[in-house]
């Protein structure tokens, strides 16, 4: 049994976020963007805090990260632990658990107020939104009906439940190919179905091509997820021949990218048509003193290292904003 015994218990509640303090910078989100923003702003000497649903963000669902400089191969979870322990050395308040309901400007139209789902309010002169994204859905009939009954969005969580079975991975990017490589170790067969050509890194494609229980169907669109109590097949369309056929499968792992999570902010800052927060080259939104970093923004290329860099940029921009305030 190979198990990762990493304990998520780093001095919770030692340093509490205070609703009576006007913080210099409050950061919403605890993924790579939020944590790096915290690192940079704290080092500038600002009074800051983090509000996040969970420290680590979506990276903890990634089994292996091989493209973060300095780590040739590390689990997503351990990479985030490194980030987290680095940030926690700086002794700053992290409020973990609650969701943000809304971000609003106070009556002075300068102070930013973050309202949580329990209606508590935290105040800051400047805010960095780093709330990341959530898995995108296929949007086909049967997907919602069988979500949790064969349709899955976390390969490392649910993979073990498909030991010895036939599964499908939907998608053609790095996440999809990584999930397929992982699943191939435990499933009987893995069929990767993607509507166009693979976008994954060549190094991953080379690796998956060596596996003999993986089949890749390109230019193929999933039309429908079928089953009774749980999934038993999918209907697909081969776009090059215009032929429809059925693939028998017990599991459909959806890995087709991510949608930004910024619902609580959409009335405060401008979004583009992909629902990403629009930021300028300094990471600032259309509202002075509100910055946004990482996957929730219109930054091209959603990558861990790009999110982390975005966080740094926002922290430095917030620093300048505070200096002239």
């Amino acid at each position: 049994m190979s198990l990762d015994f990493s304990i998520n218990f780093a001095g919770k509640e030692k340093n509490k976020l205070d609703s009576n303090t006007l913080y210099d910078i409050l950061i919403i989100g605890g993924g790579p963007a939020g944590l790096n923003a915290a690192l940079y702003s704290k080092r500038k000497g600002h009074n800051i805090g983090i509000i996040t649903k969970n420290v680590g963000g979506q990276v903890i669902d990634t089994s292996v990260v091989e493209n973060y400089l300095g780590y040739s191969s590390i689990s997503g979870e351990n990479l985030m632990k490194q980030f987290e322990s680095h940030v926690k050395e700086l002794d700053l308040p992290i409020l973990e658990g609650p969701s943000v309901k809304r971000l609003r400007l106070a009556d002075d139209s300068q102070t930013k107020e973050i309202v949580l789902d329990d209606d508590s309010v935290y105040k800051a002169k400047s805010v960095i939104i780093a709330t990341g994204s959530k898995p995108k859905k296929l949007g086909v009939p049967g997907e919602d009906q069988f979500a949790g009954n064969g349709v899955a969005y976390c390969a490392i969580c649910d993979g073990p439940l498909f030991t010895g079975l036939d599964v499908v991975v939907a998608g053609g990017g790095n996440s999809a190919i990584e999930a397929a490589i992982d699943l191939a170790k435990i499933a009987n067969t893995v069929t990767v179905v993607h509507r166009s050509q693979l976008r994954a890194d060549k190094i991953l494609v080379d690796r998956i091509n060596q596996l003999d229980n993986v089949e890749i169907k390109l230019n193929t669109q999933i039309l429908k997820v079928l089953g009774d109590k749980s999934v038993n097949s999918i209907n697909v369309l081969d776009k090059s021949t215009n032929e429809e056929y059925t693939i028998e499968t017990r599991g459909v792992f959806v890995e087709i990218g991510y949608l930004p999570t910024n619902e609580p902010f959409k009335n405060t800052v401008k979004l583009n048509d992909k629902e990403e927060i629009i930021v300028d080259k300094y990471g600032e939104t259309n509202v002075k003193g509100i910055f946004a970093a990482g996957d929730t923004t219109d930054t091209p290329y959603k990558q861990i290292i790009i999110s982390a860099a975005d966080g740094a940029k926002c922290a430095l921009s917030a620093n300048e904003y505070l200096n002239i305030l």
Partner: peptide
């Protein structure tokens, strides 16, 4: 499952 980061919560 023992490999699920969301399960302990």
């Amino acid at each position: 499952t023992l490999s699920c980061p969301h399960c302990p919560g």
